Amino acid sequence: MNLIPPVSFEQIELERANQLLVAWGHRMGALERGNSAGVHYALLHEGRPVAVAMASSLIRECVGGGNRHLTRENCIELSRLCAERPGLCRVALRLWREFVFPNMGYAAAISYQDADLHSGNTYRFDGWTQIGRSRSGTDGRSGRKGRNKLIWAWGNFNRPGDQPQ
């Protein structure tokens, strides 16, 4: 009799999540933020990690692209989403959105999608809304050039006084 559930979604340590990002070749690599309060989850198949969803506090005081009403106080960033094979990111995203995010105490979640590398379908098909565009500057630690990004949001991301969409 197998006592390990075939699939589970469990909180993991940052160090383990970063090892998985590197092993699976995430283009941004390990999550290394000095100001980051975060929580990280892994999708496990028979006890083995197959995907991660990692959430962090915003780097800047508010979301880029002119969304000044989304701040560190009311918004969390889904900062990394990665899997060992195609299709599993979508599963990890849905589990995170349905079961982790609602208990985090934030009104909204955002994620920056590299517009040059990804289509955005993972967020679009999960019901997220594209709320803006942004461009990052050169990373001071790695020297990596900035990228064009789309900003996706979930939850109550409207300006105060706006009607929810």
Rank of each mutant, 00 (worst) to 15 (best):
A55K: 06
A17N: 04
G127K: 02
W154F: 15
L58V: 04
R85C: 00
N18D: 15
A51S: 06
N103Q: 09
K149G: 14
E46V: 04
L14D: 07
R60G: 04
G66Y: 00
L3G: 14
P6M: 10
M1N: 02
K149S: 11
R33V: 07
N156L: 03
L70Y: 01
V50K: 05
G120Y: 12
R27N: 09
W128H: 09
M28C: 07
Q113P: 02
I76G: 12
D126Y: 00
A55I: 14
E77S: 09
Q11V: 05
R124C: 02
P86G: 07
L70Q: 00
K149V: 11
N148F: 15
G66N: 03
L31D: 13
L117W: 05
N74P: 06
R33K: 12
L44F: 10
N148G: 02
P6I: 01
H118Y: 05
G47W: 13
V52H: 10
F9G: 02
A51Q: 06
A42K: 07
G66D: 00
N2M: 03
P86K: 08
N158V: 14
G38W: 06
S142E: 05
V22F: 00
R72S: 09
P49R: 10
A109W: 06
L58A: 05
N74T: 07
G29D: 11
W24C: 10
G137S: 08
G155C: 02
M54K: 03
L93R: 15
F99R: 08
N74W: 13
A23G: 11
W24I: 07
R27M: 10
N67E: 03
L95G: 04
N18E: 09
N158S: 07
D126H: 03
N158P: 01
V91Q: 07
D126G: 09
S142P: 13
T129Q: 00
N103K: 14
S57L: 01
G143I: 10
R68D: 08
R97A: 15
R48V: 03
R94H: 02
G65M: 01
I76D: 14
H26S: 15
H26R: 13
E61I: 09
V52R: 11
V52S: 12
N103E: 06
Y112F: 11
N2P: 13
H26P: 09
S142M: 09
S56L: 02
